[in-house]
């Protein structure tokens, strides 16, 4: 009788579970993307039509471009905002830093819909801000009503906790004494940041960027409720293929494209990470 290695025994079930419930379905839609839908049924009729439609019809290109730009802008906004915030908590949070960061992470777990509902209560057309303006006889802020800006604010609201948490987790494992070393050796505060802090926390930052970019690219609910009629996103259109229109094959192809872009982002991030240069020394398990 051969003994099962304990690592396999312990980690095996989880890995197997993820392979079956994540990887197999993804492979399935990859397969379906080369099939054909007819009256709500999928037929194994191998062809490239779905991709041809996706890349030739202007509407899909627009959706994709819109989603890509939206995700990029949101990621950058989150990055700019989250860095100083995470830095402040990690460096100066003292014994409150766990509390401070949990308070930033918590709202995420209320779920998309209820968070959007809450956001609309303040920023929406009938929300607090516009009502207050109305009372003083002022016109509502048009920029906040069913515009790309409103959708972007919504995305930042939804995903900034990811970015803060990722950067924070990186910074708490960062040895701030290295900054003193840099200063003694002649680096001013900004120079020390660029030479030491930023490169040593790039992995955490890159993970944060991916964690914001990917769900934002697939976002369907936020643009639906905040973005207005001319904000149809790639994710919304994808959802419709599996809902109202029932064109699963085309929807699968859209899923594949979406996944490909997620992978591309991960690849770009991975390309910028040089493990040796990240100061990565393993997981420190003793």
């Amino acid at each position: 009788m051969t003994r099962i290695p304990p690592l396999l025994l312990l980690a095996g079930p989880g890995v197997l579970f993820i392979l079956v419930t994540l990887l197999l379905p993804l492979l399935a839609i990859f397969m379906f993307s080369f099939w054909r839908t007819e009256s709500y049924e999928l037929y194994p009729d191998w062809n490239l039509d779905n991709y041809r439609v996706l890349f030739t019809e202007a509407a899909y290109r627009t959706f994709l471009l819109r989603s890509l730009i939206g995700a990029l802008v949101t990621s950058l906004l989150c990055l700019l905002y989250a860095w100083p915030v995470a830095y402040f908590i990690a460096r100066h949070g003292g014994r409150y830093r766990l509390l401070l960061v949990l308070l930033l992470a918590a709202p995420f777990f209320t779920g998309v819909i209820l968070r959007i509902a809450a956001l609309q209560g303040i920023f929406g057309p009938g929300g607090l801000i516009n009502m207050a303006l109305g009372i003083f006889g002022l016109p509502p802020i048009a920029a906040l009503m069913y515009t790309p800006l409103a959708a972007t604010i919504g995305h930042v609201y939804l995903f900034v906790p990811f970015m803060v948490t990722a950067i924070y987790l990186s910074l708490v494992n960062f040895n701030f004494d290295l900054l003193e070393t840099a200063k003694i050796n002649g680096a001013g505060p900004w120079r020390a940041f660029i030479e030491v802090t930023w490169p040593l926390n790039w992995i955490g930052t890159a993970i944060g960027l991916a964690l914001v970019f990917i769900p934002c690219l697939a976002s369907a609910v936020t643009p639906r409720f905040l973005g207005g009629p001319s904000a149809t996103s790639f994710g919304m259109s994808l959802g419709q293929q599996f809902g109202e229109t029932g064109t699963w094959a085309l929807g699968s192809a859209m899923g594949v494209v979406l996944f490909a872009f997620s992978l591309l982002v991960l690849a770009v991030m991975g390309f910028t990470v040089n493990l040796k240069r990240s100061g990565f020394t393993g997981m420190g398990a003793r």
Partner: peptide, 13 residues
């Protein structure tokens, strides 16, 4: 000024 530390504090990257 130059300084040498107990835990070296070399830049790992």
């Amino acid at each position: 000024i130059g300084m040498v530390f107990q835990n070296f504090l070399l830049f790992p990257h």
